[in-house]
Amino acid sequence: MAVIFPEMLLQGMETSLQKRLRLRLDMLEMNPYQVAQKAGLGESFVRDILRGKTRSPNAANLAKLAVALETTPDWFLGAGDLAPPKSPPAIGGLPVVGTIQAGNWLDRSIIDDDDEPQIIPVARDPRFPHARQYSLLVSGDSMNERYQDGSYVTCVDYFDSGVSLKPGLIMHVERHNGPLVEVTLKAVDIVDGRMMLVPKSTNPRHAPLPLEGDAGTEILLKGIVTGNYVRTEI
């Protein structure tokens, strides 16, 4: 069933983007929140387009939306017939969607997701052809036994991957405490018979985390690290 908001019923006001977005949501049986999560966009991003609050999303975010809905940005803007391409075009690289920095708490309410992301020249992992893939800049020493400050980790969306949580995985983790969020990397390991999220760091101040969170924090497992990229100066 198509997603329709009252604002969209105004005669003649619906844009091609709104119409085609509704059509694609209906075809894939997805809701706006699911698509926003899959695309790595803000929770209200898809809903705001459907409501007409956002009529001209920037090119980078429209590209993310197209990949999540298995089509192209041009199709959303009215190119071609209403039957979208069956798969997204090849993307030359992975977007850098954030920074990993344990101990750095950010206010989610002022994080700006609209900046066009940097792209690193790393191919998608063919083991996960339909999953969202992205990269993160490593800042600090919380995982410096594996990933050095200034390098990039490549990731696949945890829920898209279909991979079960098990020791040995390196996870992209978010800790939430009210409006604050900490973005970090942790290894899955068994500590005293309990599955934990463990730093691989030479700095002893970085401590293991229980999967259920601690001290009022909530743990969200966002992605699985699939590789590491270091830019060479030339």
Rank of each mutant, 00 (worst) to 15 (best):
A2F: 12
P6M: 04
M8S: 15
L9W: 06
L10G: 14
Q11P: 13
L17N: 08
R20V: 03
R22C: 08
L23T: 01
L23P: 05
R24I: 06
L25S: 05
D26L: 01
M30C: 09
N31R: 07
Q37D: 12
A39P: 00
G40L: 11
L41F: 02
R51C: 02
K53R: 15
T54N: 03
R55E: 10
A59P: 02
A59Q: 15
A60Q: 09
A60N: 07
L62F: 09
L62K: 07
K64Q: 03
K64G: 00
K64S: 12
L65N: 09
A66D: 04
A66I: 08
T72Y: 03
W75E: 04
F76K: 05
F76W: 04
A79H: 15
K86F: 09
S87L: 07
P88C: 07
G92S: 11
P95K: 00
V97N: 01
G98R: 02
G98Y: 01
T99Y: 11
I100A: 07
I100C: 04
I100P: 07
R108N: 05
S109K: 14
I110H: 06
I110K: 09
D113S: 09
E116H: 00
I119Y: 12
I120A: 12
I120F: 00
P121I: 08
V122K: 05
A123Y: 07
A123D: 15
R124Y: 05
D125E: 01
P129M: 05
H130Y: 04
A131P: 09
Q133R: 04
Q133E: 03
Y134K: 01
S135Y: 11
L136N: 00
L137D: 05
V138E: 08
S139Y: 12
S142K: 06
M143K: 06
N144S: 04
E145N: 06
Y147A: 01
Y147W: 05
D149H: 02
Y152E: 02
C155N: 06
S161M: 07
S161D: 08
L165I: 12
L169C: 05
I170T: 14
M171H: 05
H172R: 06
H172T: 12
H172S: 10
R175T: 03
N177T: 04
N177Q: 15
N177A: 13
P179F: 10
L180D: 12
V183M: 06
V183F: 11
V183H: 14
L185T: 10
K186W: 00
A187M: 15
A187S: 15
R194E: 15
M195T: 11
M196H: 07
L197V: 03
L197P: 05
V198H: 05
T202D: 12
H206R: 10
A207I: 14
P208S: 01
P208F: 04
L209R: 08
E212K: 10
G213A: 07
T217W: 13
K222G: 05
V225W: 09
T226N: 08
N228M: 11
V230L: 03
R231V: 11
T232L: 12
